[in-house]
Write a protein that binds this DNA or RNA. Sequence first.
DNA 1: CTGTTAGCGCCTTCAT
DNA 2: ATGAAGGCGCTAACAG
Lengths: 340, 340
Amino acid sequence: MTGIDEVARAAGVSTATVSRALRGLPNVSSRTRDRVLATAQELGYVASPSAASLASGRTRTIGLLTPWVNRWFFANVIDGAERALRQLGYDALLYTFDLLDGEPRRRVDPSVLHRRVDGIMVVGLPLDDDEVASLAGLGTPLVFVGSGPAGQVTVRLDDDATGRAATEHLIGLGHRVVGHVTGVPDLVSSWSPPVGREQGYRGALADARLEVGDQLVVNGDFDVEGGRASVRELLRRRPDVTAVFASSDEMAMGAILGARDLGLTVPDDLSVIGVDGHDLGELVGLTTIAQDTLQQGMDAATLLMDMVAGGVAPSVLTYPTELLVRGSTAPPGRASEPVT
Amino acid sequence: MTGIDEVARAAGVSTATVSRALRGLPNVSSRTRDRVLATAQELGYVASPSAASLASGRTRTIGLLTPWVNRWFFANVIDGAERALRQLGYDALLYTFDLLDGEPRRRVDPSVLHRRVDGIMVVGLPLDDDEVASLAGLGTPLVFVGSGPAGQVTVRLDDDATGRAATEHLIGLGHRVVGHVTGVPDLVSSWSPPVGREQGYRGALADARLEVGDQLVVNGDFDVEGGRASVRELLRRRPDVTAVFASSDEMAMGAILGARDLGLTVPDDLSVIGVDGHDLGELVGLTTIAQDTLQQGMDAATLLMDMVAGGVAPSVLTYPTELLVRGSTAPPGRASEPVT
DNA sequence: CTGTTAGCGCCTTCAT
DNA sequence: ATGAAGGCGCTAACAG
């Protein structure tokens, strides 16, 4: 393999000059630079990343920590992030931490990131205080997407407002008994999106002087099957529920399937609203609170690279959402008509 | 930062021994190993990946090349791959190559992988011969998922059989004019999955002595919107089409949306079948040819790591598929009844 | 603007 | 089973 010294010899300069020329640093005459670039090209020289990292202490790599890549929100944020990173020549290292209901997930071990990345992006992964502290202790710039602990740079929605908006939409339609399908109940972290959305849900109900209770809240594991099962459970507990607010579109679509399983019609028998703006939501006319996940990924990555370069990032970047009314929500129908 | 020499000093051994002990190599007495492990732990020592890579020439990192991470097939394969990799302590570096209709995609530049990864996994990315050659020229083990060029290790479906099965299902139901929604038309590569599936489609039609023609084939860009638009185009060209085979479930679901846009009912006016087994297919009762993408990702990663370790991989691993009949396909209905 | 010279932190022969 | 020592290939001061 051609090394920097061969290029140096061929171009008749020192390795230092080759290094400078190739990285576009100043203090190289343009004639020299051109010659170096040409010979490097000719020899097919490509610098060894390990050697460069070892010598410089920088890796031009960002660590992406996320529970899953095959869920809509996560896949889109990661896609956006990867694009922004690529644009500035950064690589993305992927680390998933399967979040399963019941058993505790694999904990984040900061040592694997140690000296391996210049920055860390945590996407939708609720971490406990120790994990956050250990990541922060790495001394590496850190950005959270989806939600993050207080004091950390975070790109997110206003989850409380999102939960409120969704719930108020249902209340406005006339619903009085509104159920909620939340995401994975994370016992260690108090700042995951579903937590904020549930707060908003409860707040909206309380403001409207409607019933709020644990009985009306079920876990949907943040996926389709979970949402499906949750509606069954919800209606078992409370057959008088006429509307459901799900914390993600995937769960909302699952809820629609679950309603169908029970022979219920959406929205006549049950209104369903989700959060995300999933591409397939229109398939079932899903009413939702839409967000721009791709943009969040790109912005978070850009922020992170700024921080790596020594910039100071705003601590919280809150994204707008938009209520997208389609056909899955409507005023309570015949099924809930008071028996006269 | 603690280096290997500090651990060596603290444990009273040489750095060579520390290195051996920490990596579980033989020729270290268990007493010494324990002591080294303990002191390393105590000092919070973690080896520098760049230094290790530079010295050893191995990175314990795999490059994942894919067009997108936010499409069902790709996200699932990547999720599976990442799990398998992590299990053996490998990291996954993500590289996306946005495949857009019309403009040529960014070409794969092997130099960015140079000395950066121990293995390369190409997921659903059709490459031209030069790209394949340059990747292979890296001397790094290479695995293709979804489809790959002849002579390369590939994990895939039998696309021809898949296209055939889907088309025969429609023919068996009595359809005589069957349209096809294919994926991105890649002009440079002859071996992408949609190509094989289209062949199977044409073969099945030919065998049944039914019309086969370019007029019946439209491109759906492999996404929901593309599928949606394609059905409009297809029916504009041929209003007598009664069934559509789409090369992916996302396009098939788009096709269902497109049919609805035109006021058509599925399956009464138009039967639709896809390929994948998408989680949300049930939402619209999508009939499909299902495949296990997660497993393909895991197996491909495992294969690749075997190859990195010097093993020899079987050249093609063909996965089974399963016809999943739901409600989106049915015998041709009233709309196509011959006018009497 | 360019060259010299130390490292960066670990792995890996080769001895012992 | 362990140690000594020479790289791995590049970057970054420091001179000049």
